[in-house]
Nucleic acid binder design. Structure first.
Length: 300
DNA sequence: TCACGTCAAGCAGAT
DNA sequence: ATCTGCTTGACGTGA
């Protein structure tokens, strides 16, 4: 069991997701920005390692416009030594990595052009992990996509499109249950057809489920991960924001809730991504809580 | 130096 | 029709 947080560290005075406007694109600007982003990424990983935070989601913004036609620069070759260096640090310290393409990436879109653009973006994500020479336990997590008024057809479309993807994407791709369209069982039906592992989002499951218990859910998604090639299952953890109004992620970790969560999931081992607004602050607290858990002790 | 309009990309649900 | 959340602010023009 490793514990981590996504993309941003507020304690360190840098961002690994600096970007710029498309209008101001230039090769020079791209190089400068990516240099900054990679350097900051390594700083964050070092901070994490020192604090026993061994799971991290790399931002999709690492290489701005990587999949956009405007970018003809061979960033893969230019930054190859830097990627290798970061990859070495990750492997040396046994850090788990995930990456989450954003909401525009839709495999099952009705618009074929959107699918094609999504493939380009997925190739970029896969390349980042491959340039770091990470094995296939480093995952790209994606939602199933839109429903377009017909869930059955949209799931079929996902399955057919998935089969067209290259091996470099497929060996890293995992799907995540979401809070309104595709719940765990919907994901499971896609897993049956494709073998794609299911990344379980605890908070989304709380909002959108089919009545199954948390233990049943853990049994189901855990079995979709192959231990040797996929590694331990990944779990996104969050909880309802206390502030009334629309459902959203919590601002900070709820210690009691997290303790109960660890207890309730006792028979299962997995890596936890804390989707909580205050990022590394909550991760530090979670590490402290988990430090007496035998699953956590195994990795540090 | 600061305010604030806008930023590559899509969908769904609420207003 | 328009706004908001999603993993979430931050870029950059104009004053």
């Amino acid at each position: 069991m490793k514990i981590g947080y996504p993309c941003i560290n507020w304690s360190i005075d840098c961002s690994s997701g600096r970007t710029f406007r498309l209008k101001s694109y230039s090769e020079e600007r791209l190089i400068k920005t990516v240099e900054n982003n990679l350097e900051c990424l390594l700083s964050i990983l070092k901070f994490n390692k020192e604090n026993n935070i061994l799971f991290f989601r790399i931002t999709s913004e690492l290489i701005p416009f990587a999949s956009h036609p405007v970018c003809t620069f061979n960033w893969q070759e230019y930054f190859n030594p830097r990627f290798k260096e970061i990859g070495n640090f990750i492997k040396l310290n046994n850090i788990r990595i995930s990456i989450h393409p954003d909401q525009f990436i839709l495999i099952n879109s009705k618009d074929y052009k959107v699918f094609e653009n999504s493939v380009k973006e997925l190739e970029y994500h896969a390349e980042v992990l491959t340039l770091m020479k990470l094995d296939t336990t480093a995952k790209i997590q994606l939602h199933v996509g839109g429903v377009y008024g017909d869930k059955k057809k949209s799931i079929e479309r996902f399955v057919n499109r998935y089969k067209k993807l290259g091996e470099k994407i497929k060996r890293r791709l995992v799907i995540e249950n979401d809070e309104r369209s595709y719940n765990l069982f919907d994901c499971l039906s896609i897993n049956k057809e494709t073998g794609v592992p299911i990344l379980f989002d605890v908070y989304h499951h709380y909002i959108n489920n089919s009545g199954e218990t948390l233990q049943d859910a853990f049994e189901i998604f855990s079995n979709t991960w192959k231990k040797e090639t996929d590694g331990l299952p990944m779990v996104d953890y969050s909880k309802e924001n206390e502030k009334k109004g629309k459902p959203r992620h919590a601002d900070r970790i709820d210690i009691g809730h997290f303790k109960r969560f660890l207890k309730d999931t006792k028979p299962f081992d997995f890596d936890i991504m804390l989707e909580i607004k205050d990022k590394e602050k909550s991760a530090l607290k979670a590490v402290k809580i988990a430090s007496s858990d035998s699953r956590f002790k195994r990795v540090i």
